[in-house]
């Protein structure tokens, strides 16, 4: 905090008021509602509601469809995080090395940041369109009996590919800025101490990038959990048979399409808890990050 602050009885409240009002109305209230509704059961016609304690939690979370979505979300997040980080790191390291064309490379590698996930999803969808999609035709031509409408693995492949494609640019931007933050003298000292560039990368550069990597891991997991909604909703929509349902997509499906408010709310609350846990992890890392 500042050494010196204004002391004023009304002005600070006036300044925070807009933000606080918005938060109370559009954040706290809905969040409280979600928790409240998760304990209610509505009959089929929406005529009466009943307070049922944790029944919604038990019913939804122990259901096979939720467990399926949960395990797909885990696998999906792990794959998206790992692949997009790995690709971005490789590209960032290379882009940091070159001098000729560096600007062009950087620009073309980061611009996809501006593309909305659902737009990426739609583009991918058309690429995999059985009628005109070249990727669809290509995979079938090389002997892969590709059909993402019917095959769970192929459908998963499509959403992972599109999600990774969309996320590489953000990771690239952060890795590149992390690399540029490493003092030149450290690199020069390393060049004197170690001949192999490959070894130098894993023993010097990569450890120095660790704070960035940890931070990006959290960002990417959050992305895979939430922002990929747009991609799923414009490609597989959970098909085939719910095999590409993420947890967020299922909340939406059950709440809006299935009108199961109690169950959907219970899922929301569980998701909130997962995010909370993720945040705790993030703070651990941020604390550690300070030491660099």
């Amino acid at each position: 905090m500042k050494r010196v602050q204004f002391e004023h009885s009304t002005i600070p409240y006036l300044f925070v008021a807009p933000q606080i009002i918005i938060i109370v109305v559009f954040f706290l209230w809905p969040a409280a509602q979600a928790i409240y509704q998760s304990f209610l059961l509505e009959d089929a016609f929406g005529l009466s509601t009943q307070f049922v304690w944790f029944r919604n939690y038990k019913d939804t979370i122990l259901s096979t469809s939720w467990l399926q979505a949960a395990s797909f979300t885990m696998l999906f997040s792990a794959l998206v995080t790992f692949l997009s980080l790995a690709i971005a790191l490789l590209l960032a390291v290379k882009a940091n090395e070159v001098i000729r064309g560096a600007r062009t490379y950087k620009t073309t590698l980061m611009w996809a940041y501006a593309i909305a996930p659902p737009v990426a999803g739609l583009m991918g969808n058309l690429m995999f369109n059985p009628l005109i999609g070249d990727l669809y035709k290509f995979f079938n031509a090389i002997g892969w009996d590709f059909d993402h409408k019917l095959d769970a693995f192929d459908a998963g492949f499509v959403v992972v590919l599109i999600s990774v494609w969309k996320q590489v640019s953000v990771n690239f931007i952060f890795f590149l800025s992390g690399l540029q933050g490493i003092p030149k003298s450290v690199n020069e000292a390393a060049t004197l101490d170690c001949k192999s560039p490959f070894r130098r990368f894993w023993t010097i550069t990569f450890p120095l990038l660790a704070p960035t990597t940890f931070f990006l891991m959290v960002i990417n997991i959050t992305y895979a959990f939430f922002e990929t909604f747009g991609i799923i909703d414009t490609t597989t929509r959970g098909a085939p048979g719910g095999s590409t349902n993420t947890l967020v997509f299922k909340v939406f499906q059950d709440g809006f399409r299935g009108a199961d408010l109690g169950g959907s709310s219970a899922q929301s609350v569980v998701l909130m808890l997962i995010v909370l846990a993720l945040t705790v992890v993030q703070f651990r890392f941020i604390e550690r990050k300070v030491h660099y």
């Binding site: 004023h8 409240y13 509602q33 979600a34 509704q37 939430f226 909604f229 709310s265 998701l271 945040t279």
Partner: peptide, 30 residues
């Protein structure tokens, strides 16, 4: 928050901070 010393600064800060934890997606229906 940064430039004023006022009574509710700490609780208000935490209320604002909480919003970072829960994306819109998880409270979309309410």
């Amino acid at each position: 928050i940064v430039y004023f010393r006022f009574k509710l600064a700490v609780p208000l800060f935490w209320i604002i901070f909480m919003t970072l934890l829960l994306p819109l997606e998880v409270r979309i229906i309410p």
